[in-house]
């Protein structure tokens, strides 16, 4: 069993589960604690099958490159920036999961702050261009 989730995270999951936009939610350590069905298509895996995934595991599942097709280092990825700097970060990138085709997507990641600005984790949205 994973740890109890704050209400803001629970509500974020409930909202994400009812949206057509691919969404990932991570906790304060970067552990991927939820991704919705549209994100399952992009990540080519199902949340029910993987459950929660540590940061190094889920971030290794796909490659990110900038618009010049140069690889983006792990620490410069939008979600990692949102986690480390605790502010929103948006970037248009090329993304590839496994051996599938490269996708041109905009990724927006933002921190989730609770009462008294308590840091709860972050959320990431994919927007295919």
């Amino acid at each position: 069993m994973s740890s109890p989730k704050p209400i803001q995270i629970i509500l974020a999951r409930q909202l994400a589960s009812s949206l057509a936009t691919p969404i990932l939610i991570v906790d304060t350590d970067g552990t991927l604690i939820y991704y919705n069905e549209p994100a399952e298509v992009i990540l080519d895996q199902r949340f029910d099958e993987t459950g929660e995934l540590p940061a190094d595991v889920w971030s290794a599942r796909f490659a990110l490159a900038d618009e010049a097709h140069q690889p983006i280092a792990q620490e410069d990825r939008p979600m990692m920036m949102a986690l480390s700097e605790r502010k929103p970060y948006s970037r248009t990138v090329w993304m590839r999961c496994g051996h599938r085709e490269w996708l041109n997507v905009n990724i927006t990641a933002f921190p989730l702050l609770g009462e008294e600005r308590q840091f709860l984790g972050a959320q990431m949205i994919f927007w295919e261009i």
Binding site: M1, S2, P4, K5, I7, I10, L15
Partner: peptide
Amino acid sequence: ALGVLRFPSLPREWTSGGA
């Protein structure tokens, strides 16, 4: 149960007030 199609469908840690 807000926003959940079938309640309860998620484990306790993912349920408001569960802990």
